[in-house]
């Protein structure tokens, strides 16, 4: 798939804390089949996220990725479903 060409289900991305400042927006709507594909698309779309929040290839660095408010994601191949919500926040929630 070419960069920027989106397939897969539509998911909602929400940014929090300084990740939101880096993204420059509060939310995004993205089509992606997996978390890895989603994060790669976010790097392309929101240049402020890379390299500190996400690496150029979308690998998470200083970020907490939560799926549907419940699952902390580390398996980037995790498939996404229509209507999923992906939350990106600073890893040090709390304090």
């Amino acid at each position: 798939m070419r960069a920027g060409q989106q397939r897969g289900p539509a998911v909602r991305v929400e940014y929090y804390g300084s990740v939101r400042l880096r993204a420059g927006v509060a939310t995004d709507e993205v089509r992606a089949a997996s978390v890895a594909e989603l994060l790669r698309e976010l790097v392309r779309r929101r240049r402020g996220l890379s390299p500190d929040v996400l690496a150029e290839d979308g690998t998470p660095r200083a970020v907490l990725v939560v799926l549907n408010e419940r699952h902390v994601v580390d398996d980037l191949s995790h498939p996404l479903m229509p209507g999923d919500r992906v939350l990106l926040a600073n890893p040090d929630v709390g304090g």
Partner: peptide, 12 residues
């Protein structure tokens, strides 16, 4: 730390 409020609320 005010950043925590919105995300903790979202996480219920």
């Amino acid at each position: 730390t005010t950043a925590n409020l919105a995300v903790l609320n979202r996480l219920a």
